[in-house]
Design a protein around this nucleic acid. Structure first.
Ligand SMILES: [Zn+2]
Ligand SMILES: [Zn+2]
Ligand SMILES: [Zn+2]
Ligand SMILES: [Zn+2]
Length: 381
DNA sequence: CTATGCACCGATTGATAA
DNA sequence: TTATCAATCGGTGCATAG
């Protein structure tokens, strides 16, 4: 299996006094003292690459296939060769990785800063921490020459110059530079939605009840059918399989339910807009003129559970399957699938950083579709 | 207040040394 | 095969400006 080349394979400093497990950090720490600018340290300059392109997160082809095939991932986790954390249901290929991982459950922090005594679970974090005791800021912005203590900080700073806004609103096409800004914005959506009732994403019509909304949306739906005119708006079989497989695998995938904070998988998932977006994803790839409007419309969060139980048919379903049913099923129920869509959605987000071209492509289209569906969103400038 | 910006932390990953 | 480490991610908290 060819792995994607990593570019950051610099030869390790062999005999540095990098006292490994040693709880006290040796002062000569491996922490780059090649500080100012760190000439070859990939830490500092890899602006050739698109900022979001994390080489670190690239997955092996093998893993990609697992995701695509859906089932493989689950099987892999059960593989005895893999180390498995029962606490968070995560698997690791390297047993020692599991050991290290367990520290986040045990709270063990064997690495302590000898300057301030602060303890850390992971050696790398101690190294980073020790950096802050050094005088001088070591990372310089290539655009404004401002300096920063940490590489991560620099990278984030440079987004200001590059214009990269990595935080997308889940409900509209707006993007944000800061997570807090994004969250605030999304909160507004939620508040707005819950005040109004049930909003049609196509025309912004607000309905008092979900049932009314469904009736309303049927109009859009049939209108859409008229305009379709034989255009092939259907996803390819491959796409369907891919998505279907991904969904099924992910929802069973312990990896996806772990405590990995970066994924922000909520413990419980009151169906939210996320769930509504998933259907978009499912048939977005390669589709240029979809009826993305035929997505389930966000409902007030607090109402969702009720609807799911008693009025599930009011939700338009993400019809992952028969192409023929692609459009005709958009108004069908799906609540039992909430979880799956949710899971898939998060998986996509995670894979957005990977180099998986197909997932990426789909996600990209997803973003485009979000734009399409948000034309009438009051939050869109 | 809200948005912006920085300091810092927790955790994972892949390469590679042992 | 296992252990270690550099690299890098996502995230929180707080300060400050408008
Ligand atoms: Zn665990
Ligand atoms: Zn310290
Ligand atoms: Zn700058
Ligand atoms: Zn928005």
């Amino acid at each position: 299996m060819l792995k994607k080349r990593k570019k950051h394979s610099r030869p390790r400093p062999t005999d540095e006094n990098v006292s490994e497990v040693d709880t006290k950090c040796s002062s000569g720490e491996a922490i780059d003292e090649n500080t100012n600018g760190a000439e070859d340290s990939p830490e500092t300059f890899d602006f050739e690459c698109p900022p979001e392109k994390s080489i670190e997160q690239e997955k092996t082809v093998e893993e990609e296939e697992e995701v695509e095939q859906g089932v493989a991932a689950t099987e892999w986790q059960m593989d005895t060769k893999a180390s498995f954390c029962e606490l968070c249901q995560k698997s690791f290929r390297n047993p020692s990785t599991l050991k290290v991982h367990m520290r986040c459950h045990t709270g063990e922090k064997p690495y302590s800063c000898k300057v301030c005594g602060k303890c850390f679970s992971f050696p790398g974090n101690l190294s980073k921490h020790e950096h802050i005791h050094q005088v001088g800021k070591n990372f310089t912005c290539q655009f404004c020459k401002k300096t920063f203590l940490l590489h991560k900080t620099l990278k984030k700073h440079e987004r200001i110059h590059t214009g990269e806004k990595m935080y997308d609103c889940k409900f509209c096409s707006q993007q944000f530079l800061y997570l807090t800004s994004r969250n605030n914005h999304e909160q507004k959506h939620l508040e707005e939605q819950s005040e109004k009732g049930f909003v049609c994403v196509q025309c912004s019509k607000v309905c008092k009840t979900a049932a009314a909304l469904v009736m309303h949306q049927k109009k859009h739906y049939f209108r859409g059918l008229k305009h379709r005119d034989g255009k092939d708006l259907q996803p390819s079989a491959a796409e369907i399989c891919t998505w279907g497989g991904a969904a099924s695998s992910i929802c069973n995938d312990p990896k996806m339910t772990g405590e990995r904070r970066s994924v922000s998988m909520p413990e419980s998932f009151p169906p939210s807009f996320d769930d509504c977006e998933a259907p978009l994803l499912s048939y977005s790839s390669g589709v240029t003129e979809v009826i993305p409007q035929n997505v389930c419309t966000p409902s007030p969060v607090e109402n969702v559970s009720t609807i799911g139980e008693t009025d599930s048919s009011h939700f338009m379903t993400p019809p992952p399957l028969p192409p023929v049913a692609l459009h005709s099923s958009v108004l069908m129920e799906v609540p039992k699938g909430w979880k799956h869509w949710k899971a898939r959605h998060y998986n996509l987000e995670e894979n957005l950083n990977s180099d998986h071209s197909s997932l990426k492509e789909s996600t990209k289209t997803f973003t485009e579709l979000k734009t399409m569906t948000s034309f009438d969103n009051p939050f869109v400038p």
